[in-house]
Design a protein around this nucleic acid. Sequence first.
DNA 1: ATAGTATATATAGATGATCTATATATGTCA
DNA 2: TGACATATATAGATCATCTATATATACTAT
Lengths: 118, 118
Amino acid sequence: MKIDKSLMAGSTTMLILKLLDTEDMYGYQMIEELERRSQNVFTLKAGTLYPILHSLEQGGMVESYDRLSEGKRTRKYYSITNKGKKLFKEKQAEWDCYTTSVNQVLGGFGLCNHLTSM
Amino acid sequence: MKIDKSLMAGSTTMLILKLLDTEDMYGYQMIEELERRSQNVFTLKAGTLYPILHSLEQGGMVESYDRLSEGKRTRKYYSITNKGKKLFKEKQAEWDCYTTSVNQVLGGFGLCNHLTSM
DNA sequence: ATAGTATATATAGATGATCTATATATGTCA
DNA sequence: TGACATATATAGATCATCTATATATACTAT
């Protein structure tokens, strides 16, 4: 299923930080990795990703360095900072709160709240 | 927790349709009901809601009628149409797919997919 | 009465995250 | 050498939300 772009808004940065929380990656790799992990649901566009990476770097959330991979071209790898890890945790908490609330409205009970709600 | 507005994008229309799928409501009531059901997480602004209702009506997803409530002022009630119910089902399927995919990226496994993924 | 607050609907303009389109350049394969 | 995948970059468009503002009625306290 193709996901409407407006649904993606707000979660893309969190997903990028999550990828970098696992290992250092370069941009193109993140696009492929997101596609793989989501089973082709997320097809992040390069025109979306690179500006986000630049602004994350500007904000000190990630750092970049060039590396020659397998003697081929140089790739720009990104590494998450402690500040970025903190931001990721905040984003994830917000995500959990958000989806729980939506599911409460949708079904009367949140998936993670069926023991405590009501 | 306060939810970033960009996260809300894309789900607001679905939530409105869900409310109307339960019972006819007027705008102000939807704002209060969303707040109540989400335990104050969603504070939908009037300036967001009314334009959405107008465009839903224009698209034949909802119909409106005026009704005097308890002998007080007239309120504009909205009623979901069959077309609107179909749209709601589509939006909900998209929502489920989206959150499952995000959770797959976040945790390796989707909440609803831990038996089938991998 | 009347001033303030809650209820109720409406619209214009700002914001911000995504998209498309385009540009550039290298590596691989036929 | 021509086509395609890889890889990064940026400008401008789109669109759903927000804030701010406007209007009007009902209720409550002074």
